[in-house]
């Protein structure tokens, strides 16, 4: 494999890794903190892209559309959590079935509203073209996605690990009943976490738009990738999500280029190995 192809694949891997982090960080938080396997998470990603495409069509600029679309997806996530998932607390099978069913419903609605044609979101103008790093030209927007992901990772870490709000969320995970006795409104905090996760997924769907486009089936393509990330990295671990995302980004891109027939084997085999040998994931806490 020649050098320039390797470089292109590496940049693409970093980009996909960045998108996957934004997607899977939310999935991991929701699963790690609230024990909800949220299979609508891929739908949040796709919905974010579609809504933003419409907003941009109406003249909203790219970044505002990304923020706003994320907020709308977060609101949708909040409604799902409060009205449906809240009533199924602790019933994981019911949660799996409900969120899977919801994802099919969202897909149908999207197909009706946005038709079956792929919709491309234009790259924001300031980031078109290439940036030169050490004499090598890189597509600026793709690099920006990785940088955004790392910035979000730092911000999320600070929020969860360094603030009183983050400590309250962790207290609610440690011992929900005792946290309530201490006066923490655990239920409200969990809704907040769910909305935050949905926001991240929706936002990721928008900033992934210029690279992936938005099309029917995008949700079901992204969801398994997020699952692999969370299983590799360990649920509830931000660092695990970050590292896992970049691992999956590389496996996916290099796997497709080098062993196109076996791309999914390359992707899912490490997941199987981790599940068997280290079920809590690379960075997850030992259960119990």
């Amino acid at each position: 494999m020649d050098m320039s192809l390797t470089l292109v694949l590496a940049v693409n891997s970093l980009t996909l890794g960045g998108l996957l982090f934004l997607l899977s960080a939310g999935f991991s938080l929701i699963f790690g903190l609230m024990k909800i396997p949220n299979l609508t998470h891929g739908s949040f990603f796709m919905l974010g892209g579609y809504v933003a495409a419409s907003l941009i069509g109406w003249g909203v600029d790219f970044w505002s559309a990304a923020l706003l679309s994320g907020l709308l997806v977060a609101a949708f996530g909040g409604i799902v959590e409060r009205l449906i998932l809240r009533r199924l607390a602790g019933a994981e099978l019911a949660q799996v079935l409900v969120t899977l069913g919801l994802s099919f419903m969202v897909a149908d609605v999207c197909l009706t509203v946005w038709t079956g044609d792929p919709i491309r979101i234009d790259t924001p103008s300031a980031l078109r073209g290439a940036t030169s790093v050490l004499g090598v030209a890189f597509p600026a927007y793709r690099l920006a996605i990785s940088v955004i992901a790392v910035l979000f990772a730092a911000a999320l870490w600070a929020l969860l690990d360094q603030t009183r709000l983050g400590a309250m969320i962790r207290a609610g995970v440690d011992d929900p009943a005792m946290a309530r006795v201490v006066g923490i409104r655990v239920s409200r905090l969990f809704t907040l976490v769910f909305c935050l996760g949905a926001w991240l997924a929706g936002f990721a769907g928008v900033i992934g738009g210029p690279i992936l486009s938005v099309y029917p089936g995008l949700d079901q393509e992204m969801l398994p990738l997020a699952l692999v990330v969370v299983i590799l990295g360990g649920s509830g671990s931000l660092l695990g999500s970050l590292v896992g995302s970049f691992i999956v980004g590389f496996l996916y891109n290099f796997g497709q280029a080098l062993f196109p027939e076996l791309a999914y084997v390359v992707l899912f085999l490490p997941m199987l190995v981790v599940l068997v040998l280290r079920p809590q994931g690379l960075f997850g806490r030992q259960a119990g």
């Binding site: 009183r164 962790r170 995970v173 005792m178 309530r180």
Partner: peptide, 26 residues
């Protein structure tokens, strides 16, 4: 429970039940 806590009732529970993964300060 959170509403009763807001009225000024606090519990030191049996078995202590500190939040184990948080620091003392947290």
């Amino acid at each position: 429970p959170e509403a009763i806590a807001a009225l000024g009732v606090a519990l030191v529970p049996q078995g202590r039940r500190v939040f184990k993964s948080l620091t003392v300060r947290e």
